[in-house]
Structures are given as structure tokens and as C-alpha cells.
């Protein structure tokens, strides 16, 4: 597999930048897509966000200072794009009475690209109830199995605070799930 250094070297030269960008996408698109998808839930939304994310990456790759790992830098952009998207969507749904009647359960039922069972649907609903930071930390630790150090780089938060967030998130989700059993 191509290393990050090789990809960055290709991206630096105009004549190889497209090849470098394709390699970067091939290497990271799935991880970033699933990270975004767990945050926004619907495929169409995730598709919009990941495209915005990679356009931003393409335009700002020269600002990557190599102080962090490339993928934590990419995660940071993906996370910011997803949060911005969710905030806009929330504003839209607050303004629209029709969408207020929806809710995540209905949204998942209507999503043709959701194959989850009852428990997975409940887990996503529990996640939807969490504060933003706890949800992000839970997703990155539980689903994506990132180290606290990497999550710390993505969210710019201390490891201690992340451990507390994860602990609280797990406990809240457990309570939510047990209430439905």
C-alpha cells in the first residue's frame, strides 16, 4: 500500500497531484465515509458531506503541516464538515413542520441503505440523544477503534477529557438500551 509520504510527495507536484489525490482517496475514503455516515446516518447526506470533505482536502492539502498524522487531519476535516452539515440540517428541520414529525427511527426505516436490526436501530437512537462531543468520541472509540491519542488530535481535546466523555456516553447508551428491553 502507498504510504502517506508517497501520497504527499505526489500531491506536491502539479503533474502528479491528481494521481496522488486518487491514491489518497482510495486509501482513506471508506474510513472517512463510515465515520461521516455514522454521524449523519443517511447515505445521500454522507455522500454530500464526503464530497465536500475531499474538495476541502484537495484545496487545503498544502496547509497540512505534518505535525499530526495525515489521517487524523483528514478525520478532523470530515468531522467538521459533518457537524456543519448536521447543524444546517437541524436548522432546516426546525423551520419545517413536516420534517419535525420525522425523527431518527422513521428516517432509518425509510433509508434503503440501512439493514440494521432492532438493536442497532435502538443503538443509533441512543447515540442521537447524546451531546455532540460524546457522540463523536463514542463513534471514534466504539466503532472506529481509534486510540485516545488519535481522537485527541482529531478533536483537540485532552485524553483525560476524552476518557470521561466515552465513559459517560457508554453509560448513557446502556441506560437507553436497557430501558427498551
Amino acid at each position: 500500500m502507498t504510504t502517506d509520504e508517497q501520497i504527499l510527495a505526489l500531491l506536491e507536484k502539479p503533474q502528479t497531484s491528481e494521481r496522488g489525490f486518487r491514491l489518497l482517496m482510495e486509501k482513506y475514503q471508506e474510513r472517512l465515509y463510515w465515520h461521516i455516515r455514522r454521524l449523519v446516518c443517511e447515505h445521500e447526506d454522507a455522500n454530500d458531506v464526503i464530497q465536500d470533505c475531499f474538495v476541502k482536502v484537495y484545496r487545503n492539502i498544502h496547509n497540512f503541516e505534518r505535525k499530526s498524522k495525515l489521517y487524523t487531519w483528514l478525520y478532523r476535516i470530515a468531522t467538521n464538515e459533518a457537524i456543519t452539515f448536521l447543524k444546517k440540517k437541524q436548522r432546516r428541520s426546525t423551520a419545517s413542520i413536516d420534517e419535525e414529525e420525522g425523527g431518527l427511527a422513521n428516517q432509518l426505516q425509510a433509508d434503503v441503505y440501512f439493514d440494521g436490526d432492532e438493536m442497532q436501530s435502538r443503538l443509533l437512537q441512543a447515540l442521537d440523544e447524546l451531546p455532540e462531543k460524546q457522540r463523536l468520541v463514542f463513534n471514534m472509540r466504539y466503532f472506529e477503534e481509534l486510540s485516545y491519542k488519535d481522537i485527541s488530535e482529531v478533536l483537540d481535546t485532552s485524553v483525560g477529557a476524552l476518557k470521561a466523555s466515552y465513559h459517560h456516553a457508554v453509560k448513557k447508551i446502556e441506560v437507553f438500551l436497557k430501558a427498551g428491553l
Binding site: 455514522r38 441503505y113 440494521g116 442497532q120 466504539y142 438500551l177
Partner: peptide
């Protein structure tokens, strides 16, 4: 409980 769910559940989303 969450550990068990994680072990037993597959990926709920597809593309």
C-alpha cells in the same frame, strides 16, 4: 451489554 452488541452485530449501513 454494549460489548456483546458489538461482538454480535454486523454493519447496519450499506452503500
Amino acid at each position: 451489554l454494549l460489548s456483546k452488541i458489538k461482538e454480535e452485530s454486523g454493519h447496519p449501513f450499506r452503500t
